[in-house]
Design a protein around this nucleic acid. Structure first.
Length: 103
DNA sequence: ATTTTGACTTAAG
DNA sequence: GCTTAAGCCAAAA
């Protein structure tokens, strides 16, 4: 099993419980490099672990639907998260209620 | 080993 | 809310 930065990201992303979201910066921090939020996005776009890695549960630092290339992009992402049980605060995710703390 | 790039973030217009 | 600019980081070529 490889032990690179991305491996940690995938592992953490897989652990995101349903109805919760996490920010790119948060994942980067949990992986050991708080400034590598961009890399997290890159790995999500690659998404080598396919449906196993719920990349749609990864949002911007503000709960904004950043990224997502599938469907209608951020628009479809918002619908998916809402179905998962994530609370929404207008156009953004309600981080105060649905932000995954990494545990 | 060097360069390019990008699903980030923050600041400013 | 969107775009531009700069900073930071790791992967891919």
């Amino acid at each position: 099993m490889e032990s690179s930065f991305k491996e940690k990201i995938y592992k953490l992303t897989k652990q995101i419980p349903k109805g919760k979201v996490v920010t790119y910066a948060q994942l980067a921090r949990l992986a050991g490099s708080p400034k590598a939020a961009r890399v997290v996005g890159l790995l999500m776009r690659n998404n080598p672990y396919a449906p196993q890695v719920p990349c749609h549960r990864v949002v911007g630092v503000d709960g904004s639907l950043v990224g997502y290339s599938a469907g209608k992009g951020t628009s479809s992402k918002r619908e998916v998260l809402k179905k998962e049980g994530v609370k929404f605060k207008g156009p953004k995710v309600d981080l105060s209620a649905s932000l995954w703390n990494g545990r």
